[in-house]
Amino acid sequence: MANSDQPAMELRRLSFRYPNGRLALEEITCAVPHGERVAIVGPSGAGKSTLLMHLNGLLPSPSLSKDDDAQVAIEGQAVTRSRLQQIRRQVGFLFQDPDDQLFCPTVQDDVAFGPLNLGLDRAEVLARVEQGLAAVGMADCLTRNPSELSTGERKRVCLAGILACGPSILVLDEPTSNLDPRARRQLLHILREFAGTLIVATHDLDFVIDLCSRVLVLESGKVQADGPTERVLSDPLIMDRHGLEVPWRLRR
């Protein structure tokens, strides 16, 4: 599946305008190689979520119907309407609010949702549910109602539901929002175990330092900086100009 001479994710001059006329993304170009963990940081409203949703074809972008000149490519494949199912198989998307993502009455049903949509048979689905929940340390919660779980547990169940689909790329939108320190640390451990490519949009810069090797700074829909985590995050010029702060750990 993984075509190793192609980047896992590539954007070619990606622009996006909302129906109300607001330009959310402007000419973004970048490539993420296999296995890299990239953070996208920037002030609220910079276009981070919009960018992430393009990776999964979740927005009605004109680029979706351009077969030859696609602006988004996953594993060398253009993200177009006809390939959406295939793309969504490869890209797992963790949304910011776990309640948006857990819509089934039990944990088991929810984790099984993705694998069932892949058309797998029952035994395979059950095996994947088990693996997914085991990977996030929630194996004993099969019949629980998601409403009874804590925010951190819900987040982990969401992640299990995504891992059960076997993605090669994980896209995470604000994964640490509303998590207490312990839940945050658990999430960090789970994500470090993941072997594929990671793309994380977040405000949590300490989390970025612990997880990612590369950082993109996004503001006003444009990439303002791109480089190794420590270099970008410790540069006061970049950070201050884009509404961010150099984390304490990197201050000299």
Binding site: Y18, P19, N20, S44, G45, A46, S49, T50, Q96
Partner: peptide, 10 residues
């Protein structure tokens, strides 16, 4: 009428 801009919690 404002059109939904769909950008939730960016």
């Amino acid at each position: 009428i404002r059109v939904a801009d769909g950008s939730h919690g960016n």
